[in-house]
Design a protein around this nucleic acid. Structure first.
Lengths: 140, 140
DNA sequence: CCTTGATCCTCTAGTGGCTAGAGATTCTAG
DNA sequence: CTAGAATCTCTAGCCACTAGAGGATCAAGG
């Protein structure tokens, strides 16, 4: 082992500046250095960074990842807390999906109704300029 | 008219500091001031801010809003550009929805498989620690 | 006229999660 | 021994705001 930061980056898919940033915010520990002050990492850091990357890919916030990391170090503890973090994150994702879908609907309706003519007849501009019209149609 | 900034905020649903911020980034013009240096707004600003708010609610970026605002001032121009901005935004929203739904699937599978026991048996932690397992199941 | 309290002003700094770049040093292969 | 790749620290920037300090101004009531 004893990997330089670039090699750690290659093996985990986390970019070099991001690794340094994670160290700065305390998400990973400061590793030992060479005489010339360069960071050298071991196997544990690969695992930890992979964990972090997977969690980020799933959209967990850094603070939640912090908690999940602590938990993963305590194998005998109850996983109730992990479950609740994941569940609340799932609810958040559901909310975002719902919101985006509503938005998608409005957007695509707007685009469909655009006659591709002049601005003064354009539904896109019109809807933006006067949302009430859009909403009332929506309700009606 | 001649509204103070708080009244403009109330009528448009855009917060006071946000209005000042929009002025700073040139999204709205600097309005006239009272002798005591306070901003006073007219009807045009209400319309413009409403336009901006609607567009932001639909997730358009500020730079796109800038373009849409310019277009809305040129009623005789073709709305081709507005259409293309809206369409590319729609594609972006679609991408986000897709991504979130894939993510949602992984999250909820992870949660379902959590046995609510100890960390060492927890799928949530396990999946995060070793994504390959998850992916291979996914594929299989 | 004067006070009070709400609103307004400017300015700086913080949010989250990085990313970019300058300018200097260190490592490693040939 | 040298060249060039990789590393170091540090600052600043991204997006779209939001928060707060510390002070000025406005409108209404006494």
């Amino acid at each position: 082992m004893n990997l330089p930061i670039g090699e750690l980056a290659r093996r985990t898919g986390v970019k070099v500046p991001t690794i340094r940033f994670y160290e700065q915010i305390g998400l990973i520990a400061a590793p030992p250095r060479t005489e010339g002050n360069q960071r050298r990492y071991g196997k544990a850091e690969i695992d930890r960074l992979n964990f972090i990357r997977h969690a980020r890919e799933l959209g967990f916030e850094v603070d939640h990842i912090r908690e999940l990391l602590v938990m993963s170090q305590e194998p005998q503890a109850s996983c109730h807390q992990a479950d609740s973090i994941a569940k609340s994150h799932l609810r958040e994702v559901d909310r975002r999906i719902e919101r985006l879908q509503a938005l998608r609907g409005e957007l695509s309706r707007m685009i469909d109704e655009c006659g591709h003519g002049r601005i003064c007849d354009c539904r896109i501009i019109e809807v933006l300029a006067d949302h009430r019209q859009c909403v009332s149609e929506h309700v009606a």
